[in-house]
Design a protein around this nucleic acid. Structure first.
Length: 485
RNA sequence: GGCGCUAUCGUCUAAGGGUUAGGACACCGCCCUCUCAAGGCGGGAAUACGGGUUCGAAUCCCGUUAGCGCUACCA
């Protein structure tokens, strides 16, 4: 038997940015598609006009591309099942909704939202499930025609049968069953003519020949509605897989407020796409052994839906930091230059015209001391500007009465050097210390403070070499003048 | 409130009837060291609770509890 091509879709609504939870959903879809030599589709679910955000689709596409999740069919890219933006498919949904009405599986509803709201309010506290009371289901054909003729606004609702237990199989949750009595006569077409998620989703998944639906757990309770629709249309139901949710530290659904939630925020901070992708892949999945660092290609090979867990996972930034560092380790200094440049150009240092060589040296000095590239600006601004102040504690500990004179001696020694290497700085410093009859540390710490303003960072000679002789001497002189005992 | 889903160290997780319940992050200690990191070595830390089934349960079943999700003309 010939198995049919696996077709997978990622179907976000364009809210303005890609949520990290969305990134994980997209990633799992992508991994599953690639692993099975299937087709990965991007579909934009923009059926809520009140939430329209300018430029959101472009942003989504760019972010997915940044993460390395290329899709085979979708907006801009095209494909045989387009358009891939739902707001451009309104005629299709209307046609199928009307077909349902004709088949007696759905009906027009003219109730005002005020009436529905009042109905829900009245039911509140009674313990009853506040579902639509099916008033418009009782309308006669002539009533309906009369209403339609005067162009009353209306919606189309699906009929949901009573007393049915709807069972389905989920690739992650196994068997799930929900009583149809608890399901509302869901609106399919809204009064503005747009479809709701449920209709659009089912129609598109069928028309686009989607074989597997991999999405967030928040959709689990509405699966019965979808199953009913598939039945009404006589369509085959795709395989379902509902992913566990991503959570805040307090176990609520991951949201803004509690930290960055947009993929672009992480990109802007200088997290590597490899790091973010690797981290997010492990929120709910693991390979079953003790390996933790994976490239996207390796994930494609190893991923399996069977190993996806059921419980929600907290988005733990500490672990992300560590995983990202592991990926930084795998990069050369040169690899990271474009990222640093990008960050610099969005910072107060944007006017600086630093050479690639300089940047590479800075990266080389800082790469094991950061978790993301912008950490370089946070932890070593002295590579981009003179120290603005000198750390009080370091001052107290290492700056003595005699320090200025000792540093003056060091400056003299350094000024004699020609194109000094790191070793030259070290040799000269040690020689000076010896002549002064003091330990090298007596010179090292004050010099570090003079040159960086702080007491921690890369090896001193790395800093000096990167900064260059002129700058080093200038900064030490400045420190001698500015720091009064 | 109703319905659904979920439950192993603080966090991400492994073990799917027999293990001293394993790893990683974080934390602590030691080593390395001009500082801070990185790295190496070591340490503390978990089966939510109660009942079953079984010779034996983290694992299977039931209940409780808790958390989350859904309960829109939002997705």
């Amino acid at each position: 038997m010939i198995s049919k091509t696996i077709r997978i879709r990622f179907a976000p609504s364009p809210t303005g940015y890609l949520h990290v939870g969305g990134l994980r959903t997209a990633l799992y879809n992508y991994l599953f598609a690639r692993q099975n030599k299937g087709v990965f589709i991007l579909r934009i679910e923009d059926t809520d006009r009140t939430r329209y955000v300018e430029g959101a689709v472009e942003n989504l596409i760019n972010t997915l591309r940044w993460a390395g999740l290329d899709f085979d069919e979708g907006p801009k890219k095209g494909g045989s099942f387009g358009p891939y933006i739902q707001s451009e498919r309104l005629d299709i949904y209307r046609k199928y909704a009307e077909q349902l009405v004709n088949d007696g599986k759905a009906y027009y509803c003219f109730c005002t939202s005020e009436r529905l709201e009042k109905m829900r309010d009245d039911l509140e506290g009674t313990g009853a499930f506040a579902k639509y009371d099916k008033t418009c289901l009782k309308l006669s054909q002539s009533d309906i025609e009369k209403n339609l003729a005067v162009r009353s606004t209306y919606v189309i609702r699906m009929k949901v049968p009573e007393n049915r237990i709807i069972k389905f199989h989920d690739l992650i949750r196994e068997e799930v069953e929900i009583a149809s009595d608890l399901i509302d006569d869901q609106v399919l077409i809204k009064s503005d003519g747009y479809p709701t998620y449920h209709l659009a989703n089912v129609v598109d998944d069928h028309l686009m020949k989607v074989t597997h639906v991999i999405r967030g757990e928040e959709w689990l309770p509405s699966v019965p509605k979808h199953i009913l629709l598939y039945e009404y249309f006589g369509w085959e139901i795709p395989k379902l897989a509902h992913l566990p949710l991503l959570l805040n530290a307090d176990r609520s659904k991951l949201s803004k407020r509690q930290g960055d939630v947009a993929v672009e925020d992480y990109k802007a901070k200088g997290y590597l796409k490899e790091g973010l992708v690797n981290f997010v892949a492990f929120l709910g999945w693991n390979p079953g052994d003790e390996r933790e660092i994976f490239s996207l290609d390796e994930l494609v090979k190893e991923f399996s839906l069977e190993r996806v867990g059921k419980a929600g996972a907290i988005f733990n930034i500490e672990k992300l930091n560590w995983i990202n560092l592991q990926h930084i380790h795998q990069k050369t200094n040169e690899d990271l230059i474009p990222i640093l440049k990008e960050i610099l150009s969005n910072s107060k240092y944007k006017g600086l015209n630093l050479s690639d060589e300089y940047l590479a040296n800075v990266i080389g000095a800082m790469r094991v001391r950061i978790n993301y590239v912008s950490g370089i600006l946070e932890k070593s601004s002295y590579f981009f500007e003179q120290p603005q102040s000198y750390d009080e504690n370091v001052l107290k500990k290492h700056w003595r009465q005699e320090t200025p004179n000792q540093l003056s001696k060091l400056i003299k020694e350094y000024s004699l050097l020609q194109n000094p290497t790191k070793e030259d700085y070290e040799t000269a410093l040690k020689k000076t210390a010896e002549q002064l009859g003091i330990g090298a540390g007596k010179l090292i710490h004050p010099t570090r403070l003079a040159v960086s303003g702080m007491g921690e960072g890369p090896g001193l000679y790395d800093i000096l070499f990167t900064l260059g002789k002129e700058e080093v001497i200038k900064r030490i002189e400045t420190a001698i003048n500015k720091i009064k005992f």
